[in-house]
Each structure stands twice: as C-alpha cells, then as structure tokens.
Amino acid sequence: MITFKIKRYNPEKQAEPYFEEFQLGETDDLTLLDCLNQIKWTLDGSLTYRMSCRSAICGSCAVKANGHAILACQKQASQLVKDNDTITLEPLGNMKPIKDLAVDFKPFWDKVDKVNPYLQPSKKSPEKETKQSPEQFKLIDDASTCIMCGACYSDCNVLEVDDNFLGPAALAKAQRFVQDSRDGNTLARVKELSKPGGIWDCTHCGECVERCPKPAEPFDRIKEIMTVALEQGVTNNNGARHALSFTKSVKSSGSLNENIIPVESVGFFNAKGLFDLLPVGLRMLFKGKNPPILHKSIDDVDDVKRIYRELNE
C-alpha cells in the first residue's frame, strides 16, 4: 500500500492549495504515472496533471516527487517511497500552478524563444544537405536530447530568486546552436548570452544536471557556452573577467589571489563595482580575516606554469 500525498489546487474553488491523500494497493511494477492514472481513473477524476507518451520521450509528465523534479513515467513508484510508505507529489517549481500538478509553462517557453532556437546559417542554403562530421555532431548531441520537460527549470536555485535568469533548459538549447557547425551567428549569440540573466548568472549548483532525465545536463552545456564566449573575446562582463582573472592567478602562483580577483572581476574602471566591494573588504580587514597582502606561491609553481605554456594558456 502506497499513500500519495498530492498537492491539490483549483483556484475556481479554493484560493489556497492543500494536500490530499490517496492510497493504492497494487503498485508493484507501476510507474509513478501509472499510479497517477489509477488515482484519476478509479478514485478522483478531477485530478489534473500532464501526460502523453508514457515513455520518457515527450517530456509532459514532470512533477515534483518528495521535493525534487522527475518524469513521472520514468520512475517506479516503489523507488520513490519514503517514510511511512508515502510519496509527496507537488507541481514543478519556479512556475505558477494552473490546477493541481499542471503548471504554466509560458515563462519557460518565452525564455527558450529568447535564445533564437533555430539555425542562423551565414551561407546560402546548399542545394543538398549540409554535412556534419561525427565530431561536429558530438558537440551538440547531448543538448539535442533535451525533451523540454522543465525538470531543470523547476529545481534551478537561481530561478528561485531571480526570474530574469534564462534558466538551464533555454541555455542548454542555446549551446546546441552556439556550437552547431552549420550556424553562422556564434559571436552574436554568445554576446547576447553573456548579458545579465545569461550564462554567467548560473550558480554551479548542479541541480539541473541532477534532475535532467536525459543526457542534456544543462550545467555542462552552460560551461561550454562560457568557453566559446571567452574564445570569441566576449569578455566585457564580470563573469568573463572573473574566469580570466581566476585562470591568470593560478598561472602566476598556483593558487588564488583573493585580493586581486574581486577587483579584476568588477573591472578596474568600474567605480560603483569597486565601491560595492568596500564594505565586505573593510569588514574582513577589521576582523583580521583579509587574505594575506603578500600572496604566496605553491611549491613547484614552475610546473604549473609549464602546464599552462604547454596548453597555450
């Protein structure tokens, strides 16, 4: 016997969401989606959720189970059972619920739309197909597996506090075009993606990779765009300056110079940015917590410098 504690919401009847419990006896070999269907077909026909393919292909049935986004059709209910044989089900996070487990995906699609998710070739279309080598395809293979289920968007730690962030799904989709050998708009794309709300606002929490039901793994794709942006010389922003300053610091001493990196990240001529660093800097100085003024190199720093030279850095 499994108890499904489901967050119910119907604004036409009750303004506030509430939890309702349903119990199913025979759940062996059933996916979570099978269980939701059983509840809807036999216990309460008004239960609302999205579903379609039942094969982890369409991306419709993502919900939060025990606090984390999953595809309901991809997990056996028995694998999700927590204490007291219960599974808690809620709608995806970071989007507004419409009814029960169905949420409004509009902001999600708007952000995907913002990254121009289509090829923008620089050359005229060839008479026949444009060929890609296996190596070229490999660069976009992972991102191409995204099924737009919204699981990453739901659990993204940045979106919980900042609606302006494009979010992991849209950025993974962007990588699929930034690194597509047939696309001719790479520079313009990475310039746009380097603006506030873009790649450099990703906080490295890894939630999107953890929740992604496919190999798309958005955080890894976001990092690939960062590398391309730096290669393309799109460096007039704090994120890019931070990456460059960090890499330079390790090159010169083998370790981080924490006094220099914040200054180089905001930019030497950014008066407001530098002023903003003052309170925390003074606070740490006052407590004797500031990093040592004379930055010490690691032993054998020459080997680290040699590695940088060997890799043309």
Binding site: V158, D162, F165, D201, C202, T203, N237, N238
Partner: peptide, 9 residues
C-alpha cells in the same frame, strides 16, 4: 559562485 555577477540573487 555568482556573487560577482548577480549579487542580489
């Protein structure tokens, strides 16, 4: 990780 890029968030 984003303290230099998006302080408020």
């Amino acid at each position: 990780p984003i303290i230099m890029m998006n302080k408020d968030a």
